[in-house]
Write a protein that binds this DNA or RNA. Structure first.
Lengths: 168, 168
DNA sequence: TGATAATCGTTATGAGATATATCAAATAGA
DNA sequence: TCTATTTGATATATCTCATAACGATTATCA
């Protein structure tokens, strides 16, 4: 997930796997293309890659963006609550917050009611950055996805992913 | 992706993220649920998790399974060709093959025509294991997915994933 | 032919994400 | 009160993914 190396990989031997190219290697994929996990992971990597590319001006990773999104909708929560909601383990959440806080996008404040916990809040800069980030996601990232899939399939895909993540 | 720890995580604090549970934390997800990359990664982790659970009797990871599948359809290829097709870098492919070869599921043979390269072939045990693995995937893993999504959506999902992996 | 470059499998190594154990401070519960 | 739990943090281990470089072999071509 190296953000800055996107352009230096261009002439690497075989950065993009050839698995979905039919003609190049003349290799038979066989049942591999019916293996959902396989294509699911491939697709996920591509989507994250595109996200980073689209978000390059703001230097936000998907995880960082999701933290900002969640804090905007849920101000005043502590680290444990936000981390759990995002499926991030608390020890790993610390450095993620360090990075965002050092960029003045959010603040950690000791809670007056429970002085163990840190109340998390977006700063003004954090809110402004989030607005810009949302625009980048909508106009570049989602737009490209919709362009490839079509609006109907794009919406259906969102529903299916949520269903798997929820019920599977 | 720890295979053997599936059962020891049962009483961990918050292994399963609460992001898709609506009632538990009372946290507003907001636009997070519309972020494809977010749900895509969640879904991918769930699918891999289920794959490992279903494949536990044979102790095969998704990557190992895909190697066996590909070798079955393309015998006599060398390491570079298989690795490239799967999007695995050749240095990382070495230990993957070591594991499968030490289990006598495949063989590395010096090619007579080009003695730099190794010709890869499934062993009899490898073919037999692959047959059993395919059955496990079909009857457990895919069956569960189809149960959750329905056959039509499951098929549509495969198509969309392949499309993203190919065109995105 | 002989010198140079490229390829194959491999090793070593580093970065990044992810997991566990443990700690001090603070709080909750008996 | 005394004990147990929770919170954020640190240290650390593991796993995945990526690059550089090596010996052996083959290809290129002057």
């Amino acid at each position: 997930m190296t953000v800055s190396k996107t352009s230096s990989q261009d002439q690497a031997k075989q950065v993009t796997p050839v698995g979905f190219d039919e003609e190049s290697g003349a290799l038979q994929l066989g049942e591999l293309s019916e293996l959902l996990g396989y294509s699911l992971k491939r697709a996920q990597l591509k989507v994250f890659e595109d996200f980073l590319r689209c978000m390059a001006p703001l230097q936000l990773t998907p995880a960082q963006f999701s933290v900002l999104l969640l804090l905007d909708k849920n101000p005043g929560r502590n680290q444990t609550e936000i981390a759990n909601t995002l499926g991030i383990l608390r020890p790993n959440f610390v450095s993620l917050l360090d990075a965002l806080e050092s960029r003045d996008l959010l603040t950690r404040m000791r809670s007056p009611s429970d002085r163990r916990s840190h109340v998390l809040m977006l700063t003004d800069k954090g809110r402004a950055t989030l607005i810009r980030a949302k625009k980048l996601v909508a106009t570049r990232h989602e737009a490209r996805l919709i362009e490839v899939l079509g609006p109907a399939e794009h919406k259906a895909l969102l529903g299916m992913m949520a269903k798997i993540a929820r019920e599977f």
